[in-house]
Structures are given as C-alpha cells and as structure tokens.
C-alpha cells in the first residue's frame, strides 16, 4: 500500500543502517529497533543469542541415539557445517514429499540418521542446534528453493497471512503490510521478515523460534495459536521466506 511505501521509504532514509535496507523498500526488523538493541545484536560478545550458538556447536559433535553418531560424523566438523542450509528452509523432504522447517529437518535427521528420539520443539537443545545451523548461514541471502512442490505450501501460507482472524479480527497483512512503520502502542510494527531466527528476544529473556514469534502474534489478536510443528506454521514460514528472498540472514538476531 502507499502508506507502507511512504513509511518504509522514510524509515529507510532515517535509519542509516544500510545492512538492513534492501533498496526495494524491504527492511529487516533490525531497522525498526533502537540503537542499543542494534548494538547488542551486532556485537557477538554482547549478543545473548551467541550462547545458544555455542551450545549448539557443542551438541553438534555429541553422539546421540542408537547410531552412536553425532551430526559431525556425517556433516563434518562444526567449522564446515552446513553453510547456507538455513537460508533455504522450509524445503521439501524428498522422502515424504512434505515441506519441513529447519527444526523439522533436524528432527528428521535425529530419527532417521541417528536413531534418536526427536528433540522437543522450542526446547533448549533444538533452539541451540537451530541457532548454530542458522548462524552458519549468517550474512547469506535468504534463498528459498525453486521447488514447484513448495508452491502450494506458500499459497496456503499467503492465504493464512491474509486471513483476518481472532477476536480483534486482524490479518498479518493488516499490520505488517498496511501499517508497517507505524506504532501499535509502544511497539514499532516491522515488516515481518524472518531474517534472524531463532532470535534472542528481550521480552522472552531467551532464544525462541519463528514459530514462537508467530504464535505470539496470533495470541495478540486473540486468535487460536497453531501448535508448534503444525503444517499451518510451516506454510506461514514458507510464505515469509519467499517474501524475504534475497534479504540477509542475521541469525541469531536480537529483537525487543
């Protein structure tokens, strides 16, 4: 919408954070934050998300399950692990033909390749591993696969993005497309680009996944939140990734 364009342009001009601006009006959530929070994200020694990355790196080489193998056994040591992979998710799992998120992909590896039980979604170990794998793509452009099997998933995600829902009757687009750059009470409304996940959120005092963020937005409009791992959340993630194609991954981002 025009309002969005005007606000985005004003913001882009006002904030001299070239790294966050795409030159096409798209802005990372980073651009909507105060200078203190931006500084915290940019300094690895101050960014609390780096603790999760370090824990994930330790888990990377720990054997698990009946296979007795670690992630490193198959994917190589941490310093070489999976560059650019997080930037491509959600993607299609060839074995099932279903779309999977990065966390879902990690759990498939646990089950199929390590013969280990899946990690609890949103549990400490999963967040650490996904922060580590995400960090291995930091600075790379978001690069959703050109896989025709993803098209219906993105379409479903977009339909959910445009669905007005909850007691307050909001669609994601009402806030993140039509009113991005405005303030909802105290909170600046970002454009909902999934550039930094999992993020360290000051309000949570912890690292959390994109799905946790989406559930927060749903709860905020008094809609029934989708369960962690639900296909609807995978669909939303796939749509958001396609909207953010080419934007730089910042994992682990800090957000208010």
């Amino acid at each position: 919408m025009t309002r969005r364009g005007v606000l985005a342009a004003a913001l882009a001009a006002a904030l001299a954070t070239a790294a966050a601006a795409q030159g096409d009006g798209r802005l990372s959530g980073f651009a909507f934050m105060g200078p203190d929070t931006q500084a915290m994200q940019k300094d690895d020694t101050a960014n609390p998300g780096m603790l999760w990355v370090a824990e994930g790196e330790a888990l990377w080489s720990q054997p698990a399950g009946q296979s007795g193998r670690s992630c490193a056994s198959c994917h190589g040591e941490a310093a070489q692990a999976l560059p650019g992979v997080a930037a491509r998710y959600p993607a299609i799992d060839d074995a099932t033909g279903e779309a999977v998120t990065l966390d879902g992909r990690i759990n498939l590896c646990r089950q199929r390749n390590q013969q280990a039980p899946p990690l609890a979604l949103e549990g400490r170990d999963m967040l650490s591993l996904s922060a580590f794998v995400g960090h291995r793509s930091r600075g790379m452009p978001i690069d959703p696969p050109d896989d025709p099997r993803l098209a219906p998933v993105r379409e479903r995600g977009e339909a959910l993005y445009r669905l007005r829902q909850g007691q307050l009757n909001f669609s994601c687009a009402n806030c993140h497309d039509d009113n991005a750059g405005g303030r909802l009470g105290a909170a600046p409304i970002p454009q909902a680009h999934p550039t930094g996940y999992p993020i360290y959120r000051l309000e949570w005092q912890a690292v959390g996944s994109l799905q946790r963020r989406l559930r927060n937005c749903l709860t905020g409009v008094r809609a029934e939140p989708f369960a962690y791992g639900a296909p609807e959340l995978t669909a939303l993630e796939a749509y958001l990734a396609s909207r953010a194609r080419g934007m730089e991954l910042e994992t682990p981002a800090v957000r208010p």
Partner: peptide
C-alpha cells in the same frame, strides 16, 4: 477497517477459546 467491532462476536475466524 482495522478498528475492531467491539460489540460483535459473529463473522470472526479462529477466535481463541477464552474469547
């Protein structure tokens, strides 16, 4: 409009159980 209808409960989708 984005302003909610404060005294209607119909015509809404996926409302959280308590509401």
């Amino acid at each position: 409009t984005i302003m909610p209808s404060y005294h209607r409960a119909d015509g809404l989708a996926r409302v959280a159980k308590p509401f």
